[in-house]
């Protein structure tokens, strides 16, 4: 199972990763970060295939992927 680390305070909730994830596996959290943005969360870590497309489109380098 890949590990996705989200830098919650870097995320600006732009949703680029959400629009990109082929597994529709990312959503915005109800919670807000320090900057006042709703940051993202992974819906089901087991569903993630570590394709990295979310990383590719993230302008704020808020996602790190391990496998």
């Amino acid at each position: 199972m890949p590990k996705i680390i989200i830098a919650q305070n870097k995320c600006k909730g732009c949703e680029l990763c959400i629009l990109t994830c082929p597994k529709k596996n990312i959503r915005l959290s109800q919670k807000m970060n320090k900057k006042g943005f709703h940051y993202i969360e992974i819906i089901d870590p087991d569903k993630c295939n570590a394709c990295g497309l979310c990383f590719q489109v993230c302008p704020d380098v808020a996602i790190e992927i391990w496998k």
């Binding site: 600006k12 680029l16 993230c58 302008p59």
Partner: peptide, 16 residues
């Protein structure tokens, strides 16, 4: 360093 760009801005992607 955190970027000062607006959410979704292309600059950050190209920097990376």
């Amino acid at each position: 360093t955190d970027h000062k760009y607006c959410p979704g801005c292309g600059h950050g992607i190209v920097h990376r």
